[in-house]
Each structure stands twice: as C-alpha cells, then as structure tokens.
C-alpha cells in the first residue's frame, strides 16, 4: 500500500469483479488442495474441472483487468459533465448496454477488455504448456509443442489486432514510446519472445521455450505500463485528471521506510525461491518425494 489512494480507488471501483476474482481464487486453491484427499475418481474429476474452469476464468479476468487499466475509467463518476463522487473515486458496472469501450461510463466487460482477456488466456496457455514440457515427461509433450506453435500465430494476430484497436480508442496510446525512445526495449522483448515461440520447434532445449514465453509475458506487461507511465489509471472524462504515481502515493518518510524493509524482504524471497528450486529441480516424474 505504497499508493493508498490508488488502492482505495481501484479496489472500491472494481468492487464486483474483484470479489468474483476472490471467489475464483478460492475455488482454484481448494481444488488443488482437495483433489487428492479421496482416492475416488468422481471426486478427482470434480476438482479437476473446478480447477480448470476457475483458472481459465481467472486468467480471462486478469486480462480484462489489464484492459480496464489501459482503457481507463470514468473517474469521479461524471454524468452530464458533473462528478458524482470525489475526483479519484469511481464505480464500474460489470457491463453497460453497448459493451463499448468508447461509452461515457464504460463497464468492466466491453469488447476491448474482452479481447485483452483472450490475449491473456492465449499467452498463459502457451506459458503453461511450456512449463508442462519443461517439468514432465508426459506423453502429451509433443502435442503441446504443436499447441505452442499454433497458439503463437494466434497471439501474433491478436497482438496486431489489439494494438490497432487500442490506437483507435486512444489516439495517442503510443506517445510515450516516441517521447522516450528507450522505452521501446519493452515491446522489443515482447516481440523477440513471440518470434522465438513461433519458431519454438527449432529451439534445442525445452527451457528456451519457457524463457521465450516468460519474455512475452514480461515484455507485454512492461510495455503496457511503459505506455502509460506515470499514469496508473487513466480518466475517460476530461473533468477529472488521471491517477498517477505522484498524486496517489504515501508520504515520503513512509515510502523510504518501506523501501528498506521491502528490499530485505525481496532478498529473503529470492533466497526462499532458490532453496525451493534446489530441492524441486528436474522433471517431476524423476523425483522421489513424499515420505
């Protein structure tokens, strides 16, 4: 909560979708935990499906969330030129009747955010396939390589399509990249990853495919943020200004304290991750675990 105003505005504004995300997270977590508690096929089937469906919807929601952040919201709840809330607050309906991102009061789900949601689903399907190939010797690994190959073409088409639409919704969407050319490095990451995925069958090691899909995710997210910086939530009306990192942050003293313990915490996290990876490395099938 280094940006309390941003947190307060976004969490109350996206109230309904966030609560639904919570329900999905709960289902996803308990499916994973409960699946193997009974050795009974029907029980396992139920939780497999619950896990699959909640994971799929969760990714779709996260993609739509990114779409919403990029598109912006009606800050201050402006109706007929008058704010109904304080300037940095808003409340988004799940959708409005037009499903259009250009409406005065756009909803969480419109055709633009839905598109970004699909992009997220495709991207993470590739990433998940790459992970399975990397960590298992399963019989479907060869099929998954085909899946990655095909989906990466789909992703390329979707990328071009969403960039074009974004340009239509926000005519100066790519301004930051022209103003600060060094930011181009982020989209470059994205496209290097994407092209590596398209030619993934030529990559010699499984881990390279995984690196490529990681690069796509990293590049995609950083590019979106770089295009907005320093704005964190654009306003779709002309009355209330967008939320930026400057007008939403906590006090300087608080931030400097948090920087100190935050750094220590991140170092600890890296240590945990290294410890875990050391013990859990290699393909799952080759590992001997349990008691």
């Amino acid at each position: 909560m280094a940006f309390p105003t941003f947190y307060a505005a976004v969490f109350s504004g996206f109230y309904l979708p966030l609560i639904m995300v919570l329900w999905l997270i709960i289902f996803r977590a308990i499916s994973l935990e409960f699946r193997n508690k009974f050795d009974y096929q029907m029980w396992k089937d139920i939780w497999d499906k619950a896990f699959g469906i909640s994971s799929l919807l969760l990714v779709l929601f996260f993609g739509m969330a990114l779409g919403n952040i990029v598109r912006g919201v009606n800050l201050g709840g402006v109706e007929n030129g008058v704010s109904t809330y304080e300037a940095h607050y808003f409340f988004l309906p799940l959708w409005n009747s037009s499903f259009s991102p250009l409406a005065e009061n756009p909803g969480v789900i419109d055709w633009f955010t839905l598109l970004i949601g699909v992009v997220a689903v495709v991207t993470l399907s590739i990433h998940g396939s790459a992970w399975i190939i990397l960590k298992t010797n399963s019989s479907i690994n060869n099929q998954l390589k085909d899946v990655i190959h095909k989906l990466s073409f789909v992703l390329l088409v979707l990328t071009i399509l969403s960039l074009a639409i974004w340009q239509i919704i926000k005519p100066n969407a790519l301004y930051n990249f022209m103003d600060k050319p060094y930011l181009i490095v982020f989209p470059v990451f994205y496209f290097i990853g994407l092209f590596a995925l398209i030619f993934s069958k030529k990559l010699k090691k499984d881990i390279y495919v995984f690196y490529a899909s990681s690069l796509v995710i990293l590049g995609g997210l950083t590019s979106s943020l770089a295009s907005m910086f320093p704005v964190v939530l654009p306003s779709t009306n002309s009355i209330n200004e967008s939320l930026t990192i400057y007008n939403t942050s906590a006090s300087n003293y608080g931030l400097s304290v948090a920087l100190v313990w935050g750094t220590i915490g991140i170092i600890l996290l890296v240590v945990y991750a290294i410890v875990q990876k050391r013990f859990m490395k290699g393909k799952i099938d080759d590992m001997e675990y349990g008691h």
């Binding site: 309390p4 969490f11 109350s12 607050y89 906590a250």
Partner: peptide
C-alpha cells in the same frame, strides 16, 4: 480496498 476504501486512503500509509 473494496469495502473500506476511505479508511485505506486515509490510513494506508
């Protein structure tokens, strides 16, 4: 954030 946003905004720091 969802239900106590004013509280978070004021005391989040």
């Amino acid at each position: 954030g969802t239900n106590w946003s004013k509280f978070s905004e004021l005391t989040g720091g």
